[in-house]
């Protein structure tokens, strides 16, 4: 049997545990960030929506003598109070963080399976977080920017979900292309400028492909300043999630790996990732 000389299996379980811990933490940080900054905006957007719906209903009453006005905000209030939905935001962010953490750990394991788990973990973790932000947050977010409550027609929701998922898939495929381009060019001896320009070209190409998708069909009856603030805070929430995920995955210690790391701790002594 030659298996004993084979490289040891990649430590997937510690990696997954690290991804879950880092992702949950990142989701919590991003959720609390949004609870503080974005929720006041969403509350304002919902009050405006209620006003719009009430005005529309009054108009219909005046025109037809009866109105079937049925606002989405009123519907939402039947199920949960705004306070519960505020709490729901944080829970949702944690769930998203955990799920993203799983994919982060799996992607990390696939990309770096040929080298030791602990090798250049900080740099690699931050680089993967940056790639994830581009692929799943910034590029799809530029094509289909987030909209505050009060925007979104129930009749077009499945169409918009299809477009949104397509944008996420295109973002991931674009980042895979950029990564493979850079890897293959390095193998052929290309210098850093050529590799990095090619990768940037792939990202720009991905953005162009995203614009081949049809536009979001819904009207946006929201004041421009509210819309702008909400979209900036939405991208910020994405950024906080990915940044915290990259930092936590790069820094967190786990039992087995921590002890194995001890021999080469001479170099790690001055590095901040020896702590935490």
């Amino acid at each position: 049997m030659t298996v004993s000389t084979e490289t040891p299996p990649y430590p997937l379980l510690p990696s997954l545990a690290r991804g879950l811990a880092a992702g949950g933490l990142a989701g919590l940080v991003s959720g609390l960030f949004s609870l503080l900054l974005a929720e006041p905006l969403m509350d304002r957007a919902i009050r405006l929506e209620e006003k719009r719906a009430a005005a529309q209903e009054a108009q219909e009453h005046a025109a037809h003598g009866h109105g079937g006005g049925h606002s989405h905000a009123a519907e939402a209030e039947e199920l949960f109070s705004r306070g519960t939905q505020h709490f729901g935001l944080v829970v949702t962010a944690v769930v998203v963080g955990l799920a993203v953490g799983v994919f982060f750990a799996l992607a990390y394991a696939l990309v770096h399976r040929a080298s030791a788990f602990t090798e250049r973990r900080w740099e690699r973790s931050m680089a993967l977080a940056g790639a994830g932000f581009l692929a799943l947050s910034l590029l799809p977010g530029l094509r289909y920017p987030a909209n505050p409550p009060g925007v979104g027609d129930g009749g077009t929701v499945s169409e918009r979900q299809g477009l949104w998922i397509a944008a996420l898939v295109i973002g991931v495929l674009g980042m895979l292309l950029a990564w493979q381009l850079a890897v293959r060019m390095r193998r052929h001896g290309s210098g850093a400028p050529a590799r990095q320009l090619a990768a940037a070209g792939a990202v720009a190409g991905t953005l162009a492909v995203l614009w081949l998708l049809p536009d979001n069909p819904d009207p946006v009856p929201v004041p421009a300043t509210l819309l702008w603030d909400f979209r900036v805070l939405s991208l910020a929430a994405h950024l906080v999630l990915w940044a915290a995920l990259g930092v936590a995955f790069g820094l967190l210690r786990d039992g087995g790996q921590g002890t194995r790391k001890a021999p080469d701790a001479g170099q790690a002594q001055d590095a901040p990732d020896a702590r935490v």
Partner: peptide, 14 residues
Amino acid sequence: EFSHDGRHLFGAPC
């Protein structure tokens, strides 16, 4: 409805 605000914030269609 429980994940309503998270959907809007993370840009998922609602």
